[in-house]
Write a protein that binds this DNA or RNA. Structure first.
Lengths: 235, 235, 235, 235
DNA sequence: TATGAATGAGGCTTCATTCAT
DNA sequence: AATGAATGAAGCCTCATTCAT
């Protein structure tokens, strides 16, 4: 409700600035703690099994305090999702641009490095979308993601120009890679495949090879007509 | 007259056997209906948003009746999972063994044909595993799946022997394929990628090609006949 | 949510009709019990102090059962309000139409007979209105009330025609009466006035006189010009 | 030098007395602000929907500060009620005693002038009474109110003595008036009556006349001068 | 067997009040 | 005195499951 009331001025001049800022810092720190703990708990037990009270207990605070930081449990999902995408962004912006390969590796390493987390976030996003509400939040998240994708797309474009990748829109390559990584994630997470795949190390190496070759131009070798594989396919 | 022997308990005439068996048939039919309806509802709205009551209503029966068929809501998950695997089994066993490719296509077509379903089952299996309980049920499901995998593995082995696929354990190829399909599924289901991928048709074509070439022997380019991998696949 | 599912047929032919109808009867009886108990508790302690759990306990049922009968706590308010208006309607329709006075007395007796209840309903209606939602329910309640008012208005009209009441729209008289009764109610309920008014019996007699004379034509006596008091006032 | 006597604690020069008193003044001003804002918010949204935090924000202070002024939220109710009665008292004491009518008009004008407020206070008083606790506070409020009533009663007594009003205890007349005003208030506030009463202006005029004639002596028609009661009142 | 009313544990959220700074 | 983060009791509501008919 908009009570038609002006925002409070909040000029606590009688309160030492340094102390105040410490309070603020601690407040933010607590928020981080909540998010960290939530993430860990969600990953391990599934977000449905984790109650707000459990989160509060795990951080060592009261249930009500959670609601000073987040409007609802779903709001925690949103923030987690945002942070994830933001971390990714930071990662991509940090990377040395003179070494495109490392960016690539970082990106997929980031996702593959914590399969449960990646899977969790897929699920959370799905939930948020289905929930209705959160349109805005999701739009923001997607914006950040798109920016990240653009950085990667530039890379892909360079490789396409250099003839190393098939001449299809960059997002074809990106999406395909994403899909393979996602699949690998699911594999990694699946109890069944964990027991089915005996020699995991070799297998993931195999998968990595596939990922790297995937979409390579001329991977079927000696197309002399310069047409992409895709075009050939359409013959 | 054989007085010493008790008269065989009569099956009362007014309760004809055929009627009894009809009852049984109807009972089974009802079970199917519950499963079908559940599946549809779970896919569309997510299993968490669907209450047992909604399922009952959708089938036109009472809530209690559900519990005559299934011990719990999770039991429905289990049966759904089992059926899925069993259907797959049936599919693989039906297929003409003289055309290995069609088996392959059937298997992945089965999964790609209904992305939401495949995703749902991934989620359900995960849930059951995390729940503890259901060890036994899951083991059974995995057994059927393994049998299915074996059928496919035979196929892969043949192709390896014929030099068409890289010489790694068959399950490498299978798992990699599964991963790519799963990733494609996730792509398909993701709101974000649905808007990110502009030319969906071409893209999925592209992905299909990748899937088919993936793990091909000589993909680094030793095909000497100059034909694309896809054409080889079609041999 | 509209699940897109046809309403259940519900043809329990295997279930004796009489038993079924007993169940239905008991269900309705329980609903009555909930309403009765709620009304009593709300009147005595105020609806805010009464929790759904307290209501359930007072009826001797579980908390959840309440929600089989009412969608929400506010839904109980609505039903209470509806019943009140409907009871009034029944009362007015029962009354002997040959004795208009008795109808009048019944109506106001109905309200004055249980001051706390009348006050409660004023509060509940106000709450419901402020809550937003419940537009529809309130509209229905108002419809019934209007019908009741119409019955009373007829009476008033007759008295106006017979020259007994001032010639103003019937609803003027009705509303004024309503106001006085409402005020009397508040008086009755107010701790302060309960102690302020020493001789309650005489006072309420006095008030009754006022109510009956109120709006009488020519109560100021001998207006010879035949103009209503109101017109005189506007001079 | 008087060593044996401790130096009188100095009022430090840098903390001038006037500043101190300004502080006190500001503190009191703040209290007024809290009360004003609370009243406005309570009237508009209902006291239950207004949290202490909202009040604090509306005044532009911290939530904790509210509790420097008031022991509890209910304490605000008490103070509001007290102020109301005190304002009334001030009003009555200010009025020119040579014009009794104006006192009368002021009193009821005060209540009718802000229906929502009058209704709110009725509700708040009821709440406090039901709450137990606050016996003392309520007793004080009632004392002030009684004093006010006494002033009005004197007036009424004069009119009774002059034969203008029926010879019943003064509080009969006062209470009856209060009741009618209260009823008018409720009418004014009720959504239903707002739509039911089409010609509001005329109606409230009508009600006013009733209020003025109400309890008049000779209302059964013994005025021999033929003037309306209203005109008499204006004498 | 079919039913659906009844259950109650348990989840989310609100908010008056406290208290360390 | 002023602040606002922290608290936790308490409220409303959901829903899988049970059970009497």
């Amino acid at each position: 409700m908009n009570w038609g009331i002006a925002a409070k001025p909040k000029i606590p001049d009688y309160f030492p600035r340094e102390k105040e800022s410490r309070k603020v810092r601690e407040f933010k720190r607590r928020e981080e703690e909540i998010l960290e703990s939530s993430l860990l708990l969600f990953k391990t037990h599934g977000e449905d099994k984790i109650t707000v009270e459990v989160i509060a207990d795990s951080v060592g605070i009261g249930k009500g305090t959670i609601y000073k930081h987040f409007k609802s449990k779903s709001d925690i999902y949103v923030r987690l999702l945002e942070n994830y995408e933001l971390d990714l962004k930071a990662l991509l912006e940090t990377e040395d641009f003179t070494d495109p390969e490392s960016i690539w590796r970082s990106y997929f390493g980031f996702r593959m490095g914590d399969p449960e987390q990646a899977i969790l976030f897929g699920r959370l996003e799905d939930k948020l979308v289905k929930d209705g509400q959160y349109h805005e939040a999701i739009k923001n998240i997607h914006q950040v993601r798109s920016a990240n994708m653009d950085i990667l797309a530039e890379l892909v474009d360079k490789r396409i120009e250099s003839g190393k990748l098939e001449q299809v829109p960059a997002y074809f390559h990106l999406s395909a890679s994403w899909a393979l990584v996602h699949g690998a994630l699911a594999l990694h997470q699946s109890d069944y495949f964990q027991s089915y795949i005996e020699d995991k190390e070799s297998f993931f190496e195999f998968l990595l090879q596939i990922g790297m070759r995937m979409g390579n131009r001329g991977q079927s070798g000696h197309n002399q007509d310069g047409r992409s594989d895709l075009e050939q396919v359409k013959d």
